[in-house]
Design a protein around this nucleic acid. Structure first.
Lengths: 137, 137
DNA sequence: CTGCGTGCAAAATGTTTGCAATGTG
DNA sequence: CACATTGCAAACATTTTGCACGCAG
């Protein structure tokens, strides 16, 4: 694991007043290196190889804490499963209707401006695209 | 209940080769008159007042069938709960970070065009906005 | 009449909670 | 050393499944 990633994760945790534990490390590292938007259970399985004693509850607690601290984002696109994403740069999502993969689309790949006529105060937005991904096309 | 809505629902069901049952009627009617994006359980509770013998399984079966037939859309925005929406006109969603309500935003209220640089074949897209709704602002 | 759709109960899945034990700061 | 965090198990919530019965076409 890259040392700078390690330091960066430590700093992020400290900044938010979260204690640095091996489990949180493992979860953040997994998410940082994996852009597949895993579910809590998938994280649990991945982590479990390193930490056979890790529990599901810890994964759920941890991702909730990390999400509240703003270190990761939650995602719930089509099925009723909550997924987690450590990609905090502005981006959108593309869901392939064939392979069901959820792919990141960088913010700058969506061009044009949106102007709201909605009578609400829009603070952020995300575009969810659906179709066929490059491989399935 | 408006008679034209009744006929419209019957026709939609027939078109898709679905049998016309009182339960399907009740579910579609509920969704058509209710823009709150209810969950399966909320539908179940609403339906149950009319049909005390209706079962949860029927609600789940029915919404799955209706969604597959394209009569309703499924929605899974932030929490891990699947919601259903009979609004088939082009529209987007606004989630209030205070009252947590999910509000429809008509398609024409989102102005501007989006151009994809993504290497995928985009067939449809939806914009999810977040912020404070009019009442909570 | 034929089979899809329903109701029921039980199982599978996904998530939360309570509490004692542990490890971080 | 204090307290947040962990692990475990059990509770809880949500969704799916199997099967017998009933109703729509």
């Amino acid at each position: 694991m890259a040392k700078h990633l390690r330091l960066q994760i430590e700093e992020q945790l400290r900044e938010r007043g979260l204690k640095i534990t091996p489990q949180r490390f493992a979860i953040l590292e997994h998410l940082a290196q994996n852009h597949e938007h895993p579910t809590a259970d998938e994280i649990f399985n991945a982590i479990n190889r390193q930490f056979p004693r890790a529990s599901r509850a810890t994964v759920y607690n941890t991702v909730a804490a990390l999400a509240e601290a703003g270190l990761i984002e939650t995602l719930c696109l089509d099925d009723g499963v909550i997924r987690y994403d450590a990609n905090l740069t502005a981006h959108h999502h593309f869901i392939c209707r064939r392979c069901r993969k959820i792919l990141d689309v960088p913010g700058h790949a969506v061009r044009g401006k949106l102007a709201w006529r909605a009578p609400h105060q829009v603070e952020s937005y995300e575009v969810v695209m659906r179709g066929l991904c490059r491989k399935c096309r």
